[in-house]
Amino acid sequence: MSGLCDGRVTVVTGAGRGLGRAHALAFAAEGAKVVVNDLGVAPDGAGASAGPAREVVEEIRAAGGEAVAHGGDIATTDGAASLVATALHTYGRLDTLVNNAGFLRDRMLVNLGEDDWDAVIRVHLKGHFLPLRHAAAHWRAEAKAGRAPVARVVNTSSGAGLLGSVGQGSYSAAKAGILGLTSVAAAELGRYGVQVNAIAPAARTRMTETTFAGAMAAPDDPAAFDAMAPANVSPLVVWLGSAACAGVTGRVFEAEAGRITVMEGWRPGPTAEKSARWDPTEAGEAARKLLAEAEPPRPAYGAP
């Protein structure tokens, strides 16, 4: 390994399994000291176990790295504050925050209960905001004290946040919200030496194992490329979490298998204008003409 993150301290939420585990291992392999956060819940958020986070810590230590487990709920103020405090008390600094924790409670909108909506929005969107807020407060204090950080935040959105996904209204809304949060954080925190970016990954995890069950390396060929392995996403995350990505902020990347794409987001398209208020019929006629000139939207995942 290149030692890209030598001397840096990285926090990864939801790091007990799947993408988070892959990120934690990849950061450790590049020299980072890692705070491994995980509640150890089921794919729908039920239950809790300290086992997954401990196992990742043990794996990192067995490979010669440094890591500590954190089992707090990062969608609470106390849990997010203790997450940042664990990094500072254990290693004396915090350089990178990777927001990754989440779970699914998929329902079609007409069957989606308020409690399930709230739970998914809470873990994904609030679970990004609170760790980011507490980390940012630390970095701002460091910058004001004359110790300008070289800080990095990597948020985790999804193709569902970019395009929508049938049966995933709450998840799509939360992941779209993370994109907005990323843009605002990048604009507000740059003055303190903080860069904030987001990824929209695709990989085989507990949340996607049904979708990607067939997309894996041939079992009789260990050398075959497993296109949907979570570890394929981690190299980009490590780079975005390192000092090497200087000048890159407020961007969104799709990452899947061996492919990396810079997403360009909402941009103004065809426009009509008049010097007075439109009436509804005129507005409709103008809108139809503009739509005829515009690029059609990509369909939501799962749309017919």
Rank of each mutant, 00 (worst) to 15 (best):
A224C: 06
R191H: 08
G269H: 06
A151S: 02
K33D: 14
A101T: 12
A198Y: 07
L189K: 03
V196H: 04
G7P: 07
P230T: 09
P235H: 03
A292I: 07
R21C: 00
T211K: 11
A46I: 12
R93N: 10
D118E: 10
E209K: 13
G169L: 05
A48D: 11
G20F: 12
A62C: 08
V233N: 09
A143P: 00
R288F: 14
G159L: 14
N37I: 11
H70R: 00
E282R: 02
R191A: 14
H128I: 10
A292R: 11
P296D: 06
R259K: 13
A50S: 13
W117R: 00
L189P: 00
I60A: 07
M216K: 15
V252Y: 09
N37R: 05
A283M: 11
A224M: 06
A276N: 05
G16P: 05
R204V: 02
P235L: 02
K274Q: 15
V154I: 08
V233H: 05
C5S: 13
A223S: 14
G180N: 10
P304R: 11
S183E: 13
A224W: 09
G20M: 05
G258P: 03
M108D: 04
H138E: 14
A173I: 07
L112A: 01
A87G: 06
A15Y: 09
A187Q: 11
P149Y: 08
A145G: 12
D106Q: 09
